[in-house]
């Protein structure tokens, strides 16, 4: 889901960096130092997840773990995503440095949105089945939201990219389902093994 360097217009890049700066500033302010190791742990998981490819027909994609990150870190997701994407760009050439602002904004916003939408329902989890459903939805929505935002950035750059944007969203539907299942597993495991992570 990383947008490559040299595709987006200057104004979209600037808007991305502005949104990302705001997100990081709020994220750092809201992240307690006692939770910094947790943030580093999830940032590392996000950084490594890009190396695990999932094959879908002739295509393949990798896990993003956007929803678990959002549900656990809340606003702290912005600094975590930024650090991981920066290292991915430098060490693996995923995305790029100029487009880092937009990529962070896309993934950070998607992740934060599921925290705001599903965070409470997942944390409180009145029943096991409801928690599973909410976690699954959170995982799927995060991926589709990120794909939609990436498509929007492409569409804002050039209307010729609108078809690519549509393909991008449609191509991510199977990924969203997989991510939903993974998120449900992660959340259910955390609820049992380390409930303080979701506090």
């Amino acid at each position: 889901m990383h947008i490559s360097e040299g595709i987006l217009s200057g104004s979209v890049l600037l808007a991305g960096w502005t949104g990302t700066s705001e997100g990081i500033a709020v994220g750092l302010r809201k992240t307690d130092t006692s939770r910094i190791v947790r943030t580093a742990l999830l940032s590392s998981a996000f950084f490594l997840a890009s190396l695990v490819n999932v094959r879908i027909g002739p295509s393949s994609t990798h896990l993003s773990l956007l929803a678990p990150m959002g549900l656990i870190l809340g606003w702290g997701v912005f600094p975590a995503v930024f650090t991981a994407l920066l290292l991915q760009a430098v060490l693996f050439h995923f995305g790029g440095l100029l487009v880092l602002g937009v990529n962070t904004f896309i993934m950070g916003t998607a992740s934060l949105s599921v925290y705001l939408l599903f965070g409470r329902a997942v944390r409180e989890g009145r029943s096991k089945s409801l928690t599973v459903c909410m976690s699954f939805l959170a995982g799927s929505v995060a991926v589709l939201l990120a794909a939609g935002l990436a498509g929007l950035c492409l569409g804002l750059t050039d209307s010729n990219y609108l078809n690519t944007a549509k393909v991008l969203v449609i191509a991510h539907i199977p990924v969203a389902l997989i991510e939903g299942v993974v998120t449900a597993f992660v959340i259910m495991w955390l609820k049992r093994a380390a409930p303080e992570f979701l506090s």
Binding site: V37, S43, S44, F47, L48, T83, A84, L87, Q88, L91
Partner: peptide, 11 residues
């Protein structure tokens, strides 16, 4: 090595 380097930098 690069993956470990990345994780190490984050921590």
């Amino acid at each position: 090595i690069r993956a470990l380097l990345g994780v190490s930098i984050i921590f």
